[in-house]
């Protein structure tokens, strides 16, 4: 019989591991730190992040809209995190590809939110979809799909010289 989705193990269910992932996300990814990325929700298959509006991330100085390149960086980070939220245990994975569709420019002075869901995890690939929005998830600025290759080796993200479980 096929394994029921609810039967399988999610490492994110462990509050200690969840705490570690959030802590590592804040402290061990220099680029996320430089962007000022915040990780606001992690649950089974899903990650939600926030990127506060900052003048240094603007792409159009006339309108004050954030650069679309920033959206790529934001969704890439949160999509990767959603894979952690779908995995049964620590392992490494690499982004294979990512596509972003830009529906409309972002508004100046407004924070960006990114939602990503790992909607299918196979033995080798994690498939993710996501979106970026300001206040209303139903009114997205951009949509995204990405796939990740599960390389299977024990991942060092949580277990480095500086500690971890």
């Amino acid at each position: 019989m096929m394994e029921k989705e609810t039967d399988r193990v999610y490492m994110i269910d462990d509050p200690e591991i969840k705490k570690q992932i959030i802590h590592r996300s804040y402290t061990s990814i220099p680029h996320s730190m430089a962007l000022g990325l915040e990780f606001i929700e992690l649950r089974r298959n899903v990650a939600v992040g926030k990127l506060p509006y900052q003048k240094k991330l603007v792409g159009n100085i006339v309108t004050g809209a954030v650069h679309t390149g920033v959206l790529i960086s934001l969704i890439d980070s949160i999509a990767g995190l959603s894979v952690f939220c779908a995995l049964p245990e620590y392992e490494s994975f690499a982004t294979l590809d990512l596509r972003i569709d830009c529906f409309k420019p972002s508004s100046p002075n407004q924070d960006l939110f990114a939602f990503a869901e790992c909607y299918k995890l196979t033995r080798t690939i994690a498939f993710v979809r996501g979106s970026i929005y300001h206040n209303n998830e139903d009114d997205p600025i951009a949509g995204c799909v990405a796939s990740f290759f599960r390389s299977g080796k024990f991942h060092s993200f949580l277990q480095s010289e500086t500690g971890g479980p």
């Binding site: 220099p30 680029h31 730190m33 650069h67 980070s77 990512l98």
Partner: peptide, 23 residues
Amino acid sequence: EKNIGNPLLPALHGGALGGFMEN
């Protein structure tokens, strides 16, 4: 340093690379 995504490998952040290419 700020464009690093994984300091242990170390590797560039995929988003920084994507942002660079879009720019």
